[in-house]
C-alpha cells in the first residue's frame, strides 16, 4: 500500500504548492530538494496561481494499469502563468474543446483510486476557466 509517497506530496498535489527562490524570485514546480551547493532554505514554499495555458494536449485511449476506468481522458502540458510547465489531465473539457493556448485553471480532483483497501489520490487537474 502506497501511503507515504502520496502523503509527502500533498501540498504540491492538492494546492499546486511549488517553491520560490528567496534570492532570485524564480518560481519552480514541482518542488525539489536544494541542489548541491544551495543553502537549505533558499527555496521557500510558494503556492502558484493555478492559471496557465495549454502548451499541448492529447487523449489517452490505451490507459496504464490503475487508469482503466478513465479513458478516454485528456492529458496536457500546461504552461503556468508563473513560468513552470506541468503535466496534468484536463477535466470538465470535451475532447474536441481542448486547444493549444487555451486558458485553463487548476482544480483539485481525484487522480486515482487505489481500490477498496487503498487511498484515493487527489491532485491538480486543469479545466477551461469558469467565467467570473
Amino acid at each position: 500500500m502506497d501511503l507515504a509517497k502520496h502523503w509527502r506530496l500533498r501540498h504540491a498535489r492538492y494546492r499546486l504548492e511549488g517553491q520560490r527562490n528567496r534570492l532570485t524570485g524564480e518560481v519552480r514546480f514541482p518542488p525539489a530538494p536544494p541542489r548541491p551547493g544551495e543553502a537549505e532554505d533558499v527555496w521557500e514554499p510558494y503556492v502558484l496561481s493555478g492559471r496557465g495555458r495549454v502548451y499541448s494536449f492529447s487523449v489517452v485511449r490505451q490507459p496504464p494499469e490503475g487508469f482503466e476506468d478513465q479513458p478516454p481522458y485528456l492529458v496536457a502540458l500546461v504552461r503556468l502563468d508563473e513560468g513552470p510547465m506541468v503535466t496534468a489531465q484536463l477535466t470538465d473539457c470535451d475532447l474536441d474543446q481542448a486547444a493549444i493556448d487555451m486558458p485553463v485553471e487548476m482544480v483539485t480532483r481525484r487522480l486515482r483510486d487505489l481500490g477498496p483497501t487503498g487511498l484515493i489520490v487527489y491532485g491538480y487537474k486543469f479545466r477551461p476557466i469558469v467565467q467570473r
Binding site: 502548451y55 499541448s56 494536449f57 492529447s58 487523449v59 489517452v60 490505451q62 490507459p63 496504464p64 490503475g66 487508469f67 478513465q70 481522458y73 492529458v75 496536457a76 502540458l77 503535466t87 496534468a88 489531465q89 487522480l111 486515482r112 489520490v121 491532485g123 487537474k125
Partner: peptide, 12 residues
Amino acid sequence: IHGVTLTALWAL
C-alpha cells in the same frame, strides 16, 4: 500519476 503514457507524451 496523471495517467500519461509514453505514447501520450509523444502525441503531445
